[in-house]
């Protein structure tokens, strides 16, 4: 019994990362960033507007939050639709009541399925970023690149046409990527991607077609992770976000501005028994030293200070 020789060979064992996507850098070694009005914590509230197809293919895996029962899984299909019909409006009110700016991450197919909703969201003048075609369109290693390119182009153009916005941000369904996703995104005019969760600030990310920015959108603080995967209570969700914000605010006092990305799902936090917790959390956040802005505005603030170096 033995493994092939390659298992004891380490071709990438050297300084920095074991890939070329970005440079190794510790957060505390970087130039401090300041946000507008000297605010300490940039708050990016990312509201997902998603379509989970009933005829889910699950390739190469079933998307978390997707269908789990034999076809037709009406329970999960309709419960996800609940988010776009009802939960979203509760969340919009909660945000508007305390003046926190959302960014909407929308599946491209929503523009076809629900032009009214797209128009309604576009009228609010909040940033829309592209969340892939639908929740069953998973970008994955080894997939057909023509297919992937079509998904990316179709999703972006559907959202650009419906919103009149440039749509320059990207969050993959299930945050998943193929080997080529960053290259294809860059080629399609995307300027930042939220899939990689390895930082509390934006950072530069390489593609063969030129650089884009990584905008880490915490998965650990995602409502789906805390409430649905971990089955933590709503009270704990609030406490966890408050603890996170408090820590980042404290860090910002000595290390420069920080960023808190909150990914939220109307089908989860928009439930009647949960919305009050979100309202309480947003009310608390609004009282902190936060810079409430779209993902793009946060990114451009960061980018200008990189260039100024």
């Amino acid at each position: 019994m033995a493994l092939d020789a390659e298992h004891l060979m380490y071709p990438k064992r050297g300084y920095g990362m074991d890939h070329d996507r970005y440079d190794w850098s510790m957060l505390t070694d970087r130039k401090p960033i300041s946000w507008p009005q000297g605010k300490k914590l940039a708050l990016w509230v990312n509201v997902c507007v998603q379509f989970f197809p009933l005829n889910q293919q699950g390739k190469p895996f079933a998307v978390p939050g997707g269908m789990t029962m034999p076809y037709p899984d009406l329970r999960h299909f309709s419960l996800r639709e609940y988010g776009n019909r009802i939960g979203l409006f509760r969340i919009l009110d909660a945000l508007d009541n305390v003046g926190i700016v959302p960014t909407f991450a929308i599946n491209g197919e929503m523009a076809q399925r629900n032009p009214w909703l797209l128009e309604h969201l576009a009228k609010r003048d909040n940033e829309i970023l592209c969340h892939g075609w639908n929740m069953d369109s998973i970008h994955y290693g080894g997939m057909d690149s023509a297919q992937e390119q079509m998904w990316i182009e179709n999703s972006l153009s559907a959202l650009r046409d419906a919103s009149g916005q440039p749509v320059t941000g990207w969050l993959s369904p299930a945050r998943n990527e193929s080997e080529l996703t960053p290259e294809l995104l860059k080629q399609a005019g995307v300027q930042y991607c939220a899939n990689w969760v390895n930082d509390d600030m934006p950072y530069a990310f390489n593609t063969a077609n030129g650089p884009i920015a990584a905008m880490p959108l915490s998965n650990e603080l995602d409502d789906q992770f805390i409430l649905q995967s971990n089955l933590h209570s709503e009270a704990s969700y609030v406490e966890q976000i408050q603890d996170a914000a408090s820590l980042l605010l404290t860090e910002a006092e000595t290390q420069g501005g920080r960023m808190l990305g909150l990914n939220i799902h109307p089908w989860l936090l928009g439930q009647p028994y949960r919305i009050g917790y979100l309202e309480r959390l947003l009310g608390w956040l609004a009282q902190q030293d936060i810079y409430t802005a779209s993902a793009s505005d946060i990114l451009s603030g960061w980018q200008h200070q990189q260039a100024a170096e």
Binding site: L27, N176, N195, W196, V197
Partner: peptide, 19 residues
């Protein structure tokens, strides 16, 4: 669990060293 590149699992572990 995912085919290469498993950016989710990889990147949270990288978070540990970066941050």
């Amino acid at each position: 669990p995912q085919p290469y590149p498993a950016n989710q699992g990889y990147s949270i572990r990288d978070y540990g060293n970066r941050v």
